[in-house]
Computed example of a mutant assay.
Amino acid sequence: MNIIHTNLPEVMIFEPTVFGDARGFFFESFNTRRFAELTGITVNFVQDNHSRSVHNVLRGLHYQIRHPQGKLIRVIAGEVLDIAVDIRKKSPTFGQWAGTVLSAENKRQMWIPPGFAHGFLVRSEYAECLYKTTDYWMPEHERCILWSDPAIDIDWGITSAPLLSSKDDEGKLLADADVFG
């Protein structure tokens, strides 16, 4: 497994070693010991989530203000642009974002640690995402930052309005959002 570092030191992309032949392929998608060796982080994943979204759906930017979740994201069908935003007020990278394309083809995964907001845009006909979390989903603590906040200025690479949930459409600007101290 190879680590690709992003402009946000805590956000990492993992590129697995894939073994393939005429029958198909095999790769280890997660190994606790190897993750700790590569990152210096010991994680305890407590929940696995699976989402399916159609083309041009944008989900995010989501986070939990209490019981923050670390997330390990991968795509098993299609392609997304996956984004992490640092929302730790005391961080030197507060308000900055990192992004990468995750796809069934490239088999990459992105680690988004607690203290970061997360979102993705579906760039294929549809996409299925699997993600592991380090804490349980607690809707009462969930928050959403507006995907198009000009202060963050994420380059989503889109020319038309994305498909949004009402929650995502009503996200707060970073300046007005609950953030981590």
Rank of each mutant, 00 (worst) to 15 (best):
H62R: 02
G157V: 09
E170C: 06
H67A: 13
F35I: 07
E128F: 10
S91F: 01
E10K: 06
N56E: 01
N56M: 11
Q69K: 01
A117L: 01
F27Q: 09
F120Y: 03
S148A: 15
E15H: 08
H118V: 09
L38N: 00
D153Q: 08
P68S: 07
N31L: 04
R52P: 11
F120H: 01
K167H: 11
H55P: 07
N56W: 06
T133C: 05
N106C: 06
F116E: 00
T39C: 05
S148F: 15
S91R: 06
E170R: 02
E37N: 02
L121T: 02
T39A: 05
A98R: 11
N49K: 00
A177F: 03
G78Y: 04
I65H: 05
C144N: 10
K172D: 02
K90V: 12
P113K: 07
L72E: 01
L130H: 08
T159A: 12
A117S: 03
T93A: 05
Y136W: 07
D178C: 13
L164A: 11
V179W: 01
D155V: 03
G24T: 04
P16M: 10
G119V: 02
E128D: 13
N31M: 15
V46M: 12
D86H: 02
L163K: 13
I152W: 09
A77S: 14
L8G: 08
W137E: 10
R143E: 02
G20E: 12
S53Q: 08
N31Q: 11
P68M: 04
S124E: 14
E28I: 06
L130D: 08
I152A: 08
K89Y: 09
